[in-house]
């Protein structure tokens, strides 16, 4: 745990008069799971969209795997994106394709001469990894919310990324499914040697998956450390969060 894979410094982003990110600093080391906790609308999704190059920062540096994301041309950005996996809040599965086609699609597009058998083998490996081998011929509309998220994770894994970005992997799921997803995130970390940023407002998820936790409020990080360090405080803001999660 020494090499930095993501290094963000003094990041600002606004939409018109809506100042969403106001000076974010974060580093993610190799093999580390970093959890970003924050209430709805604090700009968590905006943060990882900037990391994936979907949005442009207003100022600050965003360094991913040694490259400044916002300064790359389209070819270099595409290269980098192969190494950065992004799991969307609602899975974002292609709803005109079956599960198997969803998984094969990024692989076939990015390796034009790949053999059919090899695609099939890699699809079944990632499906196995998320525990949904039997859904291969189903359409996304036939899956539950939790299954859809897992297929989303599998589709990201198939390109063998070095970094995984999870946008609210457990939002809207029941506690048992949440635990399953958390275990999956940890297993992905172990088995595929990924470093991750996990965005959530779910404390159980943060506790189970996070090596490091940062708490975000009004576009800034107000606290960071491991779970015990962050939550042993008497800080009102943190306590508010804690209470809110247990009342829920």
């Amino acid at each position: 745990m020494n090499e930095k894979v993501i290094d963000i410094h003094n990041l600002y982003k606004s939409f018109g008069s809506n100042h969403v990110l106001r000076g974010i600093d974060i580093d993610v080391h190799k093999g580390e799971n970093v959890v970003v906790l924050g209430r709805s609308g604090t700009g968590k999704s905006v943060l990882i969209k900037i990391i994936a190059g979907l949005l442009q920062p207003d100022s600050g540096t965003v360094n991913v795997l040694g490259q400044e994301v916002d300064k790359l041309d389209s070819v270099a950005l595409r290269e980098l994106r192969l190494k950065v996996g992004f799991c969307f809040q609602h899975g974002a599965l292609y709803d005109s394709m079956t599960v198997g086609e969803n998984l094969a699609f990024p692989l076939k597009r990015n390796t034009p001469n790949i053999k059919h058998e090899q695609v099939k083998r890699m699809v079944s490996v990632v499906l196995e990894a998320v525990g949904l081998a039997k859904t291969i011929d189903q359409m996304p509309s036939e899956l539950s919310g939790g299954q859809r998220k897992r297929i989303g994770i599998a589709r990201t894994l198939i390109l063998r990324p070095d970094i995984m970005l999870y946008d609210e992997p457990t939002a809207g799921l029941d506690p048992i499914t949440c635990t399953e997803i958390n275990n999956l995130i940890n297993e992905v970390q172990r088995r595929f040697h990924t470093s991750s940023i996990i965005i959530t407002h779910d404390l159980a998820c943060a506790k189970q998956t996070g090596d490091k936790i940062v708490v975000m409020k009004e576009g800034k990080f107000v606290k960071q450390g491991n779970f015990e360090e962050v939550f042993s405080t008497q800080d009102d803001l943190i306590k508010e969060f804690y209470d809110y999660n247990f009342i829920q």
């Binding site: 950065v84 969307f88 990024p106 589709r155």
Partner: peptide
């Protein structure tokens, strides 16, 4: 539009596929 709204277009982009061309 529904692909845009459900982030499928963004999903193509982050998996290094050019959604505009495709």
């Amino acid at each position: 539009a529904s692909m845009r709204v459900t982030e499928q277009i963004d999903a193509m982009e982050v998996s290094a596929i050019n959604p505009f061309k495709f």
